[in-house]
Structures are given as C-alpha cells and as structure tokens.
Design a protein around this nucleic acid. Structure first.
Length: 567
RNA sequence: GCGGGAGUAGCUCAACUGGUAGAGCAUCAGCCUUCCAAGCUGAACGUCGAGGGUUCGAAUCCCUUCUCCCGCUCCA
C-alpha cells in the first residue's frame, strides 16, 4: 500500500467519522480552511490541554532542580499594525514573485539577480563573451551587425551551449527577431533613459535583459535563472490577511490577522514583568489561531491558511541562551514522545545558516515522518534562538524601554566585588528569547497519522491507536445484549463515569460492530456487561490494541482506568 | 500562480455511442442476538461540485468557476 493511499484513507476516515471536514463544504469548499468535527475538536482540545499542562500548569524542572517559571497569555489576533512592521512581517514577507513564461517556474523576484549569477547558462554565456561577471562591460556595435565580435560570440553561443542550457531565452528561440529588438532597445534606452535615470547599456546585465524578451513592447526584466525565459513582472503575494478596523476602509484603518502568536507575547512582555513577579529566566506561553495566506495550501491540514499554534517565548540572560536552547530542545522532544509518538518517526534537524530566518541565530526543527513526506520527514515544531531581535525591534518601533533590570545579577556582581559602573551596565539588558513553536492543528494531523493502523486479521481492520491521554472518547460502555437488565446496569455505569471522562454508551447492533466502531475512532477501552455481571457484579474490560479482555469489578472500572488516562 | 489528474448518496465506487441515476458499506426503526463490522424485515438518503450554453432530451458535449490530488514554486 502506497503512502498516498494511507493519507487518502486518513482523510476519508476523518470525514466519515467526524474528525475533520473541508470548510464551507456546502458552498463547494474554500481552499486552505478546515473545520474540526465533534471528534476532531475533542482530540485537538486534549492535545492543547496536554501542552498547556506541560508548559504552564506543571512546567518542567529546571537545571537548579526547581520548576521553571512559566505563565500563560491569550493575546488579541489583531494587534497594532506597527507590530508587524517591527517584527519584519510587513516589510519582509510581502514578497514579489515572478513566473517564467517558458518553463513556468516561480521565483522570488528579489532572488533572481543572485540566482542569475549562479545560473549555469549565464556562466556559460559569460565564458563565451570572455567576461567574469554580470557587471562586466560589453563592447558591441549599436546595430549588432554580423561583423560585430560580440554579436558573433552571441550567435555561436546561442546555436550551441545556449540551445542546451537556456532553451527559454528569446535570443535562442528567435535569433533574428530578438536581435532586432535588442537594436531598438539599446538605441531607445540610450536616447532617453526612463525616469531620468542614466542606464548603462553596455553591461552584461543589460544585455541579458535585452535578449530575454521576444518583443520590445514589454519592460526590461531579468531572464529566468533556470531556462533564460521571460519572467512576468513581479506580483505581490502578501502572506498576511488584511482587514480594516473601524468603518472607514482606507490605508489608515488597515489591520492584519496575526501570522504568528509570538508577537502578542513580545507586546505583553513588559506587562507580564510588571504584574506577575516573574524574574528572568521565565516563559510566556500562548495557544491560539494564526493566519497565513499561503500560496499553496497542501497535504490536508499540514499547511492551511488558518491554523492553531502553541508557542512559548523563553526570556533569559544572553549568556545562558544556548544552555536554555538545549534544555528546550530536549523538553520538547520529550513532550512529543509523551503523546505516544514513536521514536523512529521523530527527529531533530538543524537549520543551515542560509536557511535561518531573519530573526534567528540558531534553529532546530523537530520533524515527523508524515505519510506524504515518507521516507523523508516534514516540519513539526521549530525551536528558535531569536536572540534579542524581537524585543529590540519593538523597543525601537514603540519607543518603550523593554530592558530587564536583573537585581539578582546585581547582587551577585556586588558580592564578587565588581566595579560599580560595570555592575550597572551588566545588570540591565534586553533578554534573549528561545522559542519552541509548534502547530496544534499539525499535532492533530500527526496523531491521526501516527495512530492510523491496519490489521486485516482483526475484526476491525482499521483502527486509531491514540494514546489514552489524547483519545477523543476514553471508554465505550455496552450491554452485551439488549435485555435481562443489562442495558440498565450499563447505563448506570455510564451515568456515573461520564462525569469523570468522555464515555459513550451504545446498546445498538452486534457487540462486534460496537467494538469496531470504537476502534475506528481510537477509543482505548470498552466495558461490556454480560450474564456473569448479574451474578458477581463484574464486567469485561477490553483493550483496543490487543482486543484482550479481563474481568473487572463494576465499581473498580474508574480506578483501573484513571492512571492510564491522566499519565 | 503554472502544468497534469479528478469531483456522482455520509464513505468507496458504477452507469456503453447523450435517453427515467445504481451497488456495497455506513445510517435509522423493528425483530433476533451472551463477546469482536453476524442475520432477517423495513426506511431514509442525490437538482450527478457550482453557474451558463448546445439539444426534443445532458452525470455524459462546450464555456466559465470552485474544490481536491500530484508536480513546479512558496512555506517568514
């Protein structure tokens, strides 16, 4: 069975049993949005609660043997627009993109010049022209006659290497017409440079642009780094959703839906410090929705346009940042393992230097082997060393001081006999931030993938082996048959246990069908009342994964289950 | 956004060259049933993704559009 099929089956199961539905389905759906059904929301809430408990209510033990300091937060989805200027989201992520009309590839427009420098076909062309870089000067006769040495070199190149390396280049595809166009372009540009800017018409860079267009009616643009084809003019792909606050819909009222929850924490860093008695190092955790107008939502809920994040910002002294980075790296992996995710499906992957975000000094991803990435792994959680980037940015843009005065450090330095001036300088600083950021909706996907199991030898060939902690329903309660007072006993137990955890009572259809139904939604346990129950007040307790049964006293069911449900 | 494939019952899929939309499973009701999707009887379920066009007649042909899957690209 291929992994694509597994994914199809999971998507189908999610729909069929009410985990996840496509959003706005009755209107034909809306790309990149999903609705969590009755079972999906239970599963999602269970994961959310587990994270919140592990981070805020019962945070890990620190290196000093005491629990670390952590508080929670729930900030607004819409914040002051300047937030996103300071964070870099407004400037950096509304990336203009261009598509190649020949080979159809998509490029970030601002990356094209650099890519051209490294492109095979450009290197080859430079070699043919005897130049070493794009800014090299080219000599040619304005009319590009056949006698012109540059034209001759271009001609030779276009017929040989160019044909292989740059099949999309206009000069290669249509030699005569393009050459004609280049003549006009050069003379026109030399006569009147647009926007009054002097344009150097004798550089390789200009030459490349001139020879990339099939006609002269289009503006000069860099050619495609891949095939030399003509690129479309840069188009904006704004990755943030926009809205307007207030009645007037103009630029002054423009607001953004947050593309990450993290910034809400940085905005409240000072509030938390001023009102909660926490001291560095401490963390602020938040769970909530974020929105990104992704170019291509793909792979079920893996990349959707509305999603839920679980982020924590750990504020610490710059000298201790690396130690805490390692601490959280280990803690976060431990948490994923605690959800029952198998070791071989998880791994760490360090970001390469060129892959690091603008804000990060060091980032490691926890990756999971999703069915659609297998045998490779895909992103699950990012743990980033953000340095003091965010607080410094907000300090500059808001004009508010976001420094931390470290009184403990001050006392320590004083005791060490450090000079007064140095103590002052060293005990006031902008904390560094370690950020473990993961997707709650991605965690739901992971548990569905991890839990999905097939076993043709079972009566219920497909089942979800969720860890009991996160299973949407914990216990199925069935009378073996619908008579002899068994339904009454079962319902009494149900009425008792439903106050403790999620139970389902079912007396319909055959017992096998009821077990199978519970298996399919990942219910870890079922109890069944039978003839013996009437005699000795015991029931059978069935385990989902082994289908094994044992007899348990009716009044001991809850006690038996609780440790497994809360561990 | 580009290229390729696909949308028919809750799910998985049929329906020949244009001629009254079907099956299995699931669901519901009743009967039966003492441990793993059992059986019997009955019921409900579709403007065939949406909109327009051609036609006496469209799930089927044409146009537009939406969504999903795969690839390219993007993923802060």
């Amino acid at each position: 069975m291929s992994d694509a099929t597994v994914m199809d089956k999971i998507v189908s199961l999610c729909k069929r049993r009410g985990f996840i539905y496509p959003a706005s389905e009755i209107y034909g759906g809306i790309n990149g949005f999903w609705d969590y059904g009755p079972l999906g929301v239970l599963l999602k809430n269970n994961i959310r609660d587990s994270w919140w408990r592990a981070m805020v209510e019962c945070p890990p033990i620190g290196p000093d043997g005491h629990p670390i300091e952590m508080v929670g937060l729930d900030s607004a989805i819409i914040q002051h627009p300047k937030t996103w200027v300071a964070s870099g989201h407004v400037g950096g992520f509304a990336d203009p993109m261009s598509t190649c009309r020949q080979c159809k590839r998509l490029f970030r427009s601002d990356h094209v010049p650099d890519m051209l420098r490294d492109a095979e076909w450009v290197k080859s062309l430079l070699g043919a022209l005897g130049k070493s870089g794009l800014d090299g000067l080219v000599e040619f006769h304005e009319d590009f006659t056949e006698a012109d040495p540059t034209t001759q070199a271009l001609s030779r190149w276009a017929r040989k290497e160019g044909k292989k390396l740059a099949p999309g280049l206009a000069l290669v595809r249509q030699w005569t017409a393009t050459l004609d166009g280049m003549r006009k372009t050069v003379s026109e540009t030399q006569r009147g440079a647009p926007h009054g800017q002097p344009v150097a018409t004798n550089t390789v860079e200009f030459l490349l642009r001139a020879m990339a267009r099939p006609s002269t009616s289009e503006p000069l643009l860099d050619p495609c780094p891949n095939c030399g084809g003509d690129l479309t003019p840069p188009r904006q792909f704004n990755l943030m959703f926009e809205s307007h606050a207030g009645a007037v819909q103009d630029d002054s009222s423009k607001v953004y839906l947050r593309p990450e929850t993290a910034q809400g924490i940085f905005l409240n860093y000072k509030n938390v410090l001023d009102t909660t008695r926490v001291k560095v190092p401490f963390g602020v955790a938040q769970i909530g929705k974020s929105f990104r107008n992704e170019v291509t939502p793909r792979n079920f809920v893996f990349r959707s346009r509305e999603f839920e994040q679980m982020e924590m910002e750990w504020f610490c002294h710059p000298d201790e940042a690396k130690t805490w980075f390692e601490f959280w790296k280990a803690e976060r992996m431990r948490w994923w393992r605690s959800l029952g995710v198998s070791e071989q499906n998880l791994r760490f992957r360090d970001h390469e230097a060129d892959e690091l975000s603008h804000y990060s000094k060091m980032t490691v991803d926890i990756e999971y082997r999703y069915p659609f990435t297998a045998p490779d792994y895909g992103e699950l959680e990012g743990i980033a060393h953000r340095g003091s980037f965010d607080l410094t940015q907000h300090q500059q843009h808001s004009g508010q001081k976001l420094e931390y005065f470290d009184q403990e450090l001050q006392l320590k330095l004083k005791a060490q006999g450090v000079a007064e001036d140095e103590i002052k300088a060293r005990s006031r600083y902008v904390p560094n931030v370690i950020e473990p950021a993961s997707g709650l909706t991605r965690a739901v996907l992971l548990l569905l993938c991890e839990g999905y199991a097939e076993d043709a030898s079972r009566a219920s060939p497909t089942y979800l082996k969720f860890d009991p902690k996160v299973a949407p329903v914990k216990l199925g309660i069935f009378p073996l048959v619908n008579k002899d007072g068994l339904p009454e006993i079962a319902e009494k137990l149900y009425m008792d246990l439903r106050t403790r955890f999620a139970c389902e009572f079912d007396a319909k259809q055959s017992i096998g069908k009821r077990y199978a139904r519970m298996d399919e939604i990942g219910t870890p346990f079922c109890v069944t009342m039978d003839g013996q129950t009437l005699e000795d007040q015991t029931v059978t307790l069935r385990d989902r994964d082994t289908a094994a049964q044992e007899r348990v006293a009716l009044d001991q069911v809850a006690a038996r289950l609780m440790p497994r449900l809360t561990a």
